[in-house]
Design a protein around this nucleic acid. Structure first.
Length: 415
RNA sequence: GUGGAUGUAGCUCAAUUGGUAGAGCCCCGGCUUGUGAUGCCGGUGGUCGUGGGUUCGAGUCCCAUCAUCCACCCCA
């Protein structure tokens, strides 16, 4: 056990080789997929002015009101560790002067920070792959966005995922619907659970997917956003569905998908699994047409999503370790320098090589075996004089004397 | 933030009604010093999460604290 003072901060975990191998797999597939849709990677700050999130996410949200790592730095500035990526992306879009540069398609990957109570699939520092598109109103772009998210997860080969879509309406139709919903809920407030009563004011749409069964029983005839969309939103949503159908992307309409953050409108979607307990959402996003102007930019439609790398990693099959091609076993101190040079040359030629450090042959072979190397090159006095190595195939146990210059070809021929 | 479970060697776990800790795996070394996976022998390694308390005596009881896990809240 590590003593308390040397432990990492609660909910902030290390990425050890087994973890990082999985993360890289996810990142590689993401890069490949997103790039094919003409998205460009951006790298944005982890530290941002606190005000950015207060203005974009909303002061009342849990994220801003109690989950941000916010502090004052030595110069008296209010800064924080980003709790999500979209606000920073919008900030960068505006600050970079890209509002007249046509549609921007961006993606990024990196850590986000939220001071929540940790549990499975929920960390205080976690990584997201975020995607944002600025300047396109959809619905074609919405379809492509969903298709891209789908293609990404298909590429990872994670089974049993479900895409759920909804429309959150817009500034035209949502306020009226919201009023109607609140009125409906207030009539039944005394029959709803405590948290639902709090939600009536804070986020009434959240009441609809309350997990308490007694609440669910009371809400069978509750009004839903989808039945109250304005003409524009309604057309947008049906075009979205048409597009998904055309691409044969399976999905269900879940009228109870809600977004916690204030800036979302119209298309909202989640990709969920039932294998992660309460943290089943593996990717989520939606349209946020109002945010750019909210942050003092020109009215600019936008849509994006974020995928949780750690959550995806938990769904991934074991990712095979990259095995070293070859281990160098040096017999006798007089060949050490020569063997080091051989190792360096083989690496130069592209092989992954481990030098076993000399000493007893038995010890070195054990080391090679535990390192799962495919071949061992034994170099002793005789081999050095002859300019050869004894090359042993660790799987078959066969070995033969080959010229030093032929090792690369031998190893590559076997793979 | 709320509720619950857990916390003994690097890992997975034992330790009878409280009497000052064991196993397996891993790791390291050896089995005549140029050959590994199996085998045999040996070895390192724990202030029983941490800090208090009860007791002649606590891994074993009580309290606090930290961390992990689960659910709620919320979310990727």
């Amino acid at each position: 056990m590590v003593t308390k003072s040397l432990q990492s901060i609660r909910g902030i975990h290390d990425g050890l080789p087994d973890d990082v191998r999985r993360w890289q797999r996810i990142e590689d597939v993401a890069r490949a997929t997103l790039t094919r849709y003409a998205f460009s990677e951006v790298r944005l700050p982890v530290l941002e002015p606190t005000e950015l999130f207060v203005r974009s996410i909303g002061e009342e949200t849990d994220i801003v009101s109690k989950e941000m790592y916010a502090f004052t730095d030595q110069g008296g500035d209010h800064i924080c560790l980003r709790p999500e990526g979209t606000a920073g992306a919008v900030r960068a879009y505006l600050q970079g002067g890209l509002t007249r540069s046509g549609i921007q398609r961006w993606f990024y990957m990196g850590p986000m920070f939220r001071r929540e109570r940790p549990q499975k699939g929920r960390l205080r520092q976690f990584q997201q792959i975020g995607v944002e598109m600025f300047g396109a109103a959809g619905p074609v772009e919405d379809v492509e966005m969903l298709a891209m998210a789908h293609a990404f997860l298909e590429g990872l080969g994670i089974p049993d995922l479900q895409l759920q879509v909804n429309s959150l309406g817009c500034s035209v139709c949502r306020p009226a619907y919201r009023d109607q919903l609140v009125a409906y809920l207030q009539e039944r407030a005394d029959t709803l659970c405590e948290t639902c009563n709090e939600r009536i004011d804070k986020n009434p749409m959240r009441v609809l997917d309350c997990k308490v069964t007694s609440c669910q029983a009371k809400l069978g005839d509750a009004p839903e956003m989808l039945d109250h969309l304005c003409d524009g939103c309604s057309a947008h949503f049906s075009d979205l569905r048409q597009g998904l159908d055309a691409l044969e992307i399976p999905y269900i309409v879940n009228p109870r998908i809600v977004r916690g953050l204030d800036y979302y409108n119209r298309t909202a979607f989640e990709i969920v699994t039932d294998k992660l307990g309460a943290q089943g959402t593996v990717l989520a996003g939606g349209r946020y047409d109002g945010l750019v102007s909210e942050l003092s930019g020109p009215a600019t439609p936008a849509i994006g999503f974020a995928a949780g790398i750690e959550r995806l990693a938990m769904l991934l099959d074991d990712v095979a370790l990259e095995r070293p091609d070859l281990a160098i076993v040096a017999i006798g101190d007089e060949v050490l320098s020569y063997s080091l040079k051989q190792a360096a040359d083989l690496r130069q030629a592209g092989l992954c090589v481990v030098h076993c450090g000399g000493g007893g042959a038995r010890r070195q072979f054990k080391m090679a075996d535990r390192g799962y190397v495919r071949f061992v090159a034994v170099i002793g006095e005789d081999e050095m004089q002859a300019g050869k190595v004894t090359l042993k195939d660790m799987a078959s146990g066969e070995q033969k004397l080959v010229k030093a210059g032929a090792v690369v070809a031998e190893v590559q021929a076997a793979s």
